[in-house]
Design a protein around this nucleic acid. Structure first.
Lengths: 146, 146
DNA sequence: CTAAGACCTACAGTAGCTGTAGGTTCAAGG
DNA sequence: CCTTGAACCTACAGCTACTGTAGGTCTTAG
């Protein structure tokens, strides 16, 4: 009665590569599935749901460690949901920081491009801007990297 | 007359690790510097300027390949600056795409957090949202990953 | 029965560093 | 002059999150 889903079908359903499933299994995010007589993996609905959960979380920018934490919550559904909430909030803060950082980059790049004279490299503003050690305060060289 | 700058001083000036300089040398972004009698690297101003250029570009989100391209332009300063302009524009497009993607993530995360009931995991909206295969159109699961 | 395609394991490679082990050199203090 | 400790050296392993490759096996349609 159980559907037997091949690794290729599961990967297609999740929009990822076959290798990615094997990798998730290897690092313990997915359980070892049943095998056919010929040793090929056979997944069930629940496994595919778990995979979709993982992929969805990854699409939302959660690290594999965060996904692992979320899955451990899912595996114990009677606890309070504060932990899941906290993980999402941490993630939100990080996303906001990345957005701020990228907006600053965008401004800096637009400034560089706007001033490109179309002349020679030696006069090019893009290169000049990168040569300036100091920058113009839009991006500080010291703490700018995540 | 030349200043002799140690690798530690150069790294400090650029706000990166000593290993990073050795790595850049290894992959050909920085030239092999002079060595002391005791085989220690001695950099000159020009080397440090090149390093600062690299770090600045990295801070702006350029890949090492893009940095490599920009440096090859710097090394031939009499050519037209169209190439540098094109690299910066490509980078700008990528940055804008990343921003759009992150804004969608932010909205999705805020929605998840807003609806967290504070109850049990089994009712938690954060988890529910991740379990929904379909999502609510904010982030498409298929093409969402860069 | 055969051939193509999907699957298997095992391992190497990607980016961009970072960390470690085990040894050498340099500069300052005694 | 000698010692001590920081900074340096090489070489290599490890990190994240996969992706690709080689060489072989299984399944399924014709």
């Amino acid at each position: 009665m159980q559907e037997r889903i091949t690794i290729g079908q599961a990967a297609a359903a999740a929009g990822c590569k076959v290798q990615t499933l094997r990798y998730y299994e290897q690092i313990g995010l997915l359980p070892h599935p049943l095998r056919s007589e010929g040793n090929q993996r056979l997944y069930r609905r629940a496994d595919v749901d778990r995979l979709l959960f993982i992929r969805h979380a990854r699409d939302l920018g959660f690290s594999l460690q965060a996904v692992r934490d979320l899955l451990s919550l899912v595996d114990q559904p009677d606890q309070a949901c504060d932990a899941a909430d906290a993980i999402a909030k941490t993630q939100l803060v990080e996303v906001e920081q990345r957005i701020d950082r990228l907006l600053a980059l965008k401004a800096a790049l637009e400034g560089m491009i706007r001033q490109c004279s179309g002349g020679k490299i030696s006069d090019c503003r893009v290169i000049q801007a990168l040569c300036d050690e100091v920058g113009r305060g839009e991006v500080s060289p010291r703490d700018a990297r995540r």
